[in-house]
C-alpha cells in the first residue's frame, strides 16, 4: 500500500533544513520504492508555529515536522540541559554530544515519553550570537544594553545574568525597525537570520559569543510510524540519518555565504578571547542553578566530552 505523509517546515525550501527535508523525502520515496511518500510544506504554510506543529504531530494531523529542540523540552526535560547557554566549546563539541550516547538516549526518550512523538534525528542550526549597534567583547560592556529576545524565560534570564535587559514582544519582522529606531540596542540570532532579515544594516556588530546552540530535531508522529510499518520505518530512519551530514554541510555553506554578505555589507565580526568566553560562562552560574539543577550529571558529562575539543 502507498501512503503519503505531510511534513511541516517553518523555514523556506532553500534553507538548510528545507533542503534536508527535501533530500529526506527524496530518499524515502526512492528507498521504499514509492510505498512511502513525503509531501513537504515549507515556510510555515501548514503551521506557522513549531509548538502547533508538535501538537499536530501528537494528534496525527501530519506525519513529520522539523522543529527546534527547545519546544521538545516540554516532553523530554533533559533536552533543557542540551540547550543551556555557553555549554559547548564549538560545533564539533555539540555534535559529539548529540550523536553520542547522551543525544541518542534523549532522542529515544522522545518516543518513550508516550506523547505520540517519535524523535528521528538532529540537524544543525548553528549558534546564536548577539548583534548590536555598539561593539562589546566583555560582560561588563553589556551593562544597560537592551536586546530583543525571543519570548523564552531562560533566554531572558540569560541576558539579565549578563547585566543587560532582554525585551520580549517584538516580532521578528519588527526587529530591524526596533534597532534602527533605538527601541532596542540589538538582538541575537544566527548568521543566516542576521543577514536575511537585513538586521546587519541596523546593528553592524556581530559578537561571536555563540551563547546557545539549539539543534533542530526532525520529529515524526507515532501514528505515522504505525502506518508505515516496522520494515519501512527502518528505511525511513536510515534515510533520515543519511541526511544529517548533508544538512550540516548545507548549514556551513549557508553560514559562510551569510557571513560574506554581512561582512561585505560593513558588519564587524567581534571574536571573543578564551578569557572573555570564560567570563561569559562564569556569569551563567545562577542560570545553571535555576535551569540545570536536575541535570547536573548530564552537564558534567557534556563538559567532560568538551575536554577533547
Amino acid at each position: 500500500a502507498e501512503i503519503t505523509l505531510k511534513l511541516s517546515e517553518v523555514h523556506k525550501a532553500d534553507y538548510p533544513t528545507g533542503l534536508a527535508d527535501q533530500e529526506f523525502a527524496r530518499l524515502v520515496e526512492e528507498k521504499t520504492e514509492g510505498r512511502v511518500k513525503i509531501d513537504c510544506h515549507f515556510s510555515g504554510t501548514l503551521y506557522d508555529k513549531e509548538a502547533a506543529a508538535i501538537e499536530a504531530l501528537q494528534d496525527g494531523e501530519i506525519g513529520f515536522a522539523r522543529v527546534s529542540a527547545s519546544p521538545v523540552g516540554t516532553f523530554v526535560p533533559e533536552i533543557n540541559a542540551l540547550i543551556l547557554p555557553y555549554l559547548y566549546k564549538n560545533g564539533k563539541h555539540m555534535w559529539a554530544v548529540l550523536n553520542g550516547e547522551i543525544g541518542q538516549t534523549i532522542l529515544k526518550n522522545i518516543e518513550a515519553s508516550g506523547q505520540g512523538l517519535v524523535g528521528i534525528c538532529y540537524y544543525d542550526a548553528g549558534s546564536r550570537c548577539f548583534y548590536c549597534t555598539k561593539s562589546f567583547s566583555t560582560v561588563a560592556e553589556m551593562a544597560g544594553l537592551k536586546f530583543r529576545m525571543q519570548d523564552n524565560p531562560m533566554m531572558l534570564d540569560m541576558v539579565a545574568a549578563l547585566g543587560a535587559q532582554g525585551v520580549a514582544g517584538i516580532g521578528s519582522n519588527e526587529v530591524y525597525n526596533a534597532i534602527k529606531t533605538g527601541v532596542v540596542d540589538g538582538a541575537e540570532n544566527n548568521y543566516p537570520t542576521y543577514q536575511n532579515m537585513g538586521d546587519y544594516e541596523a546593528a553592524p556588530y556581530y559578537i561571536l559569543d555563540q551563547h546557545t546552540r539549539v539543534p533542530e530535531i526532525l520529529l515524526a508522529s507515532a501514528d505515522a510510524k504505525a502506518q508505515v510499518g516496522e520494515a519501512d520505518w527502518a528505511i525511513v530512519m536510515e534515510c533520515a540519518a543519511a541526511t544529517q551530514q548533508y544538512e550540516i554541510d548545507e548549514w556551513a555553506k549557508k553560514e559562510e555565504s551569510s557571513k560574506k554578505i554581512v561582512v561585505e555589507g560593513g558588519s564587524t565580526i567581534v571574536e571573543l578571547t578564551p578569557e572573555a568566553f570564560a567570563e561569559f560562562q562564569a556569569a551563567m552560574a545562577p542560570l545553571y542553578e535555576k535551569y540545570g539543577a536536575n541535570y547536573t550529571e548530564i552537564i558534567s558529562q557534556i563538559k567532560a566530552i568538551g575536554e577533547q575539543f
Binding site: 503551521y47 496525527g60 494531523e61 516580532g171
Partner: peptide
C-alpha cells in the same frame, strides 16, 4: 484533509502577537 488541521489553524490565525 483532517478538519482539526483547519480548526487548529483558525486558532493559530488569531493567537498571534502581531
Amino acid at each position: 484533509e483532517k478538519l482539526t488541521l483547519l480548526m487548529r489553524n483558525m486558532v493559530l490565525g488569531v493567537n498571534n502577537f502581531s
